[in-house]
Design a protein around this nucleic acid. Structure first.
Length: 345
DNA sequence: AATACGTACAACCGCCCTCAG
DNA sequence: TCTGAGGGCGGTTGTACGTAT
């Protein structure tokens, strides 16, 4: 049985609010408050509006001290930082920006800030996806990418990547990403901890050993070890270890597979460890930027990394690879390929 | 001047959560 | 414990306005 509607939709006005309606609503709430019942409110004041519509109008436009437009650089920074760490939880983000509403921030993000930060890459991706939608390619869900990550998660990764790049240039970093207020830093850390506690955390110690990884689904030893010195040019050895067996696969890359961990973001490194949360990390491998993340589509789980197109637009920088597993302890597929997009192999 | 296209944003939709009965 | 109403929230749509052709 379906839920009863909150109002009589046939007799409810929709669309933009008139100044008269605004005045009625504001005047009543100023005088009596909302009374804790938005559904009953429009009848009380003779408005042919849904209670939810009244609530939205009040919260987003009529209540005092609401700011519209004119987002500052600092606000951009806060929105971006929080989006990276907690995703599209607009109400939480709005709570950190006095006078801003979740709707306002959401609109600002979707129409301007996202384009400002990701515009170039987005265009490239759209072109690429158009290419991929040929009959030879798999159909993709409109809300997911080719590797199964949600658009939101991918955007957050892309933004994180952008931040890593900027972090390597103190001048740019300071210009574009002003230092966060200590409270904002605390909030970020808290949000990240909350997220980490609910997901697989992977430690990526940089040790002079071949790349190794264990199944994200395995309960033991979730870590990847990456050789920080030269990995043989043109080839890369990988060992995938699961809880029940170990297989080794050697694959080739089209470029020198030299890991330059000196370019890892300081925020991602701690005593030679790279901490990767559920939404991934970033590092450089042989001149190309990589992002890494754990993805789980319900039936399979895998650690995936993919490259970020560099400003050179040189396709030689585009590489991606992934590990995948179909069950907790089954064998793994490992691959690294020259590509401009990520994917499972 | 007319039309097409792009952008910004207000508002709606519907799902999920909370809580009272 | 269950159920349903109300509130909260994120995603999406509709439309007005600006710009390009």
């Amino acid at each position: 049985m379906g839920r009863a509607p909150c109002c009589d939709k046939a007799n409810v006005k929709k669309g933009p609010w008139s100044p008269e309606e605004d005045a009625k609503l504001k005047s009543y709430i100023d005088q009596y408050g909302t009374g804790g019942n938005w559904i009953a409110l429009p009848q009380k004041i003779g408005l042919k509006r849904c209670g939810k519509s009244c609530r939205l109008r009040w919260l987003n436009y009529l209540r005092p001290n609401i700011k519209h437009g004119g987002f500052s650089e600092e606000e951009d920074n806060i929105i971006c930082s929080l989006y990276i760490s907690i995703g599209s939880r607009w109400s939480i983000i709005a709570a950190q920006l006095p006078g801003r509403t979740d709707n306002d921030i959401k609109n600002y993000w979707n129409t301007r800030l996202k384009k400002k930060l990701l515009g170039r890459r987005k265009q490239q991706q759209q072109l690429h996806h158009q290419h991929q939608q040929s009959p030879d390619h798999h159909q993709q869900s409109p809300t997911s990418t080719s590797n199964g990550l949600s658009n939101s998660a991918l955007e957050r990764l892309q933004l994180h990547m952008k931040l890593q790049t900027l972090n390597q240039n103190p001048l740019l970093h300071n210009m574009l990403w002003p230092k966060l207020h200590p409270f904002q830093e605390k909030l970020l850390l808290q949000a990240m901890n909350d997220e980490n506690s609910n997901n697989n955390i992977m430690q990526l110690p940089l040790l002079p050993q071949p790349i190794m990884m264990e199944s994200p689904l395995s309960n033991i030893g979730k870590e990847i070890m990456i050789n920080p010195t030269n990995i043989a040019s043109e080839t890369m050895a990988m060992t995938a270890t699961t809880s029940s067996n170990t297989t080794t696969t050697t694959t080739t890359t089209t470029t020198n597979g030299i890991l330059d961990h000196s370019n890892c973001s300081p925020s991602m490194m701690n005593n030679n460890n790279i901490n990767v949360s559920s939404y991934g990390g970033a590092f450089q491998l042989g001149g190309g930027d990589f992002m890494m993340g754990n993805l789980d589509n319900g039936t399979t789980s895998s650690l995936v990394w993919w490259s970020n197109e560099f400003e050179t637009n040189d396709v030689n920088y585009d590489r991606s690879g992934s590990f995948s597993s179909s069950s907790n302890d089954s064998s793994w597929d490992c691959a690294l390929r020259s590509s401009d997009d990520a994917g499972l192999f």
